[in-house]
Nucleic acid binder design. Structure first.
Lengths: 198, 198
DNA sequence: TCATAAACTTACCGCTTGGTAAGTCGACAT
DNA sequence: ATGTCGACTTACCAAGCGGTAAGTTTATGA
């Protein structure tokens, strides 16, 4: 299969899994949306589980790229971490679809035997803990304390990233636009406040 | 049907919908776990959608009770809002199941025509906006700014509330216990920092 | 030119899904 | 005694699910 049609297929699968969840998105529906039959899709990926796994893998690769791509040795560790977290809020870094899918993974992996959704998160979180502890104020903090503060910031970002349809429904397009404009400024303040005071 | 067996049924349905999502939880599975046949369940609730709706309604009632039950006229508006938000972090206020289910609703209601998950949220969020603007520093803030800051705190709380299985998987029981102990302290600091600085 | 292999299609399969129809059973009020 | 009503069972149903088997078409490279 040409690698770009494969990417296209995976894009589509990602969108449908994000929107409907693993159980809600049938392989027939995914295939159909690209003009394929269910069996053709199955031919390429073997099974639904494997397809889902590849979607997840692709997202985690993007995550890794994010870590690697950061500018090294910023002088101010707070500013550095702040920039890193703000990237996560940027929809171009990780697509809204990916954010939704990861949130579903967070909800589902209690019963999923496969730990595919977890292994990359561990490295990611440990990296964040290290970044927090690089801040002078946080030098003697425990890992749990560092993780707590950074996980709160992660929650603030990801929860919002997943709320677009709901918030638009409640406050309308205009209301959401105003919120979306105010959000980054407040987020910067929040990150700064969380990491400075201690 | 006796009202307490009905509550038991709804408890069970809530747990299964929270764990597996609307599509992942079959009415047969829900009924089975209480020793009923699928048809008996269907007899009581009419359809799966209706059962789900009642589960959602029950949760939103608990939400309303939370708003009503608050101590009126705290002198310090920051402390008052902080206490209110900390309640949300307390698992006895809203069960982890309910938190999970609401998070799923946030993800699903894009395609769900029914706005059941939305209407109660509106009042809740508007209440929070009002509470923020009652703080002197925030008096002349826009609604969008107030919503942004409070939504970030909501995200920090709810994201964490949904992460237990994942975090336990990554850091082990002990690691999670340490995090869970450190979390509220950091959360208080975060809320305070977010609402004070401006 | 011919073999090989990838990219499909057609035709199934067994199982589960949500839902319906019709009847059974016991309690209880008239 | 009888009617009736709610709680439940048995027996279905069509549709959808993920997946398999076997064949067909199409491009490619030796």
């Amino acid at each position: 299969m040409a690698s770009d049609t494969r990417e296209q297929l995976l894009d589509n699968a990602e969108a449908l899994f994000a929107e409907r969840g693993f159980y809600g998105a049938s392989i027939a529906a995914i295939a159909n949306e690209l003009g394929l039959t269910k069996q053709a899709l199955l031919h390429h990926f073997g099974s639904k589980e494997k397809l889902y796994g590849e979607v997840l893998k692709r997202i985690s690769v993007r995550f890794d790229d994010l870590s690697k791509g950061e500018e090294l040795a910023a002088f101010d560790p707070i500013a550095s971490l702040q920039a890193y977290l703000l990237q996560l809020h940027n929809p171009t870094t990780l697509s809204p679809n990916a954010t939704r899918l990861l949130m579903r993974e967070l909800l589902d992996n209690k019963r999923r035997v496969d730990t595919a959704g977890t292994w990359y998160l561990k490295a990611f979180l440990e990296g964040l803990i290290a970044k927090v502890k690089a801040i002078p104020n946080w030098h003697n903090a425990t890992d749990a304390e560092a993780l707590a503060v950074v996980y709160q910031l992660l929650g603030a970002i990801n929860y919002y990233g997943v709320s677009t349809p709901t918030l638009t429904g409640i406050f309308g397009e205009d209301g959401y636009a105003a919120l979306d404009q105010a959000f980054p400024k407040q987020l910067k303040r929040l990150i700064n406040a969380a990491l400075t005071a201690r």
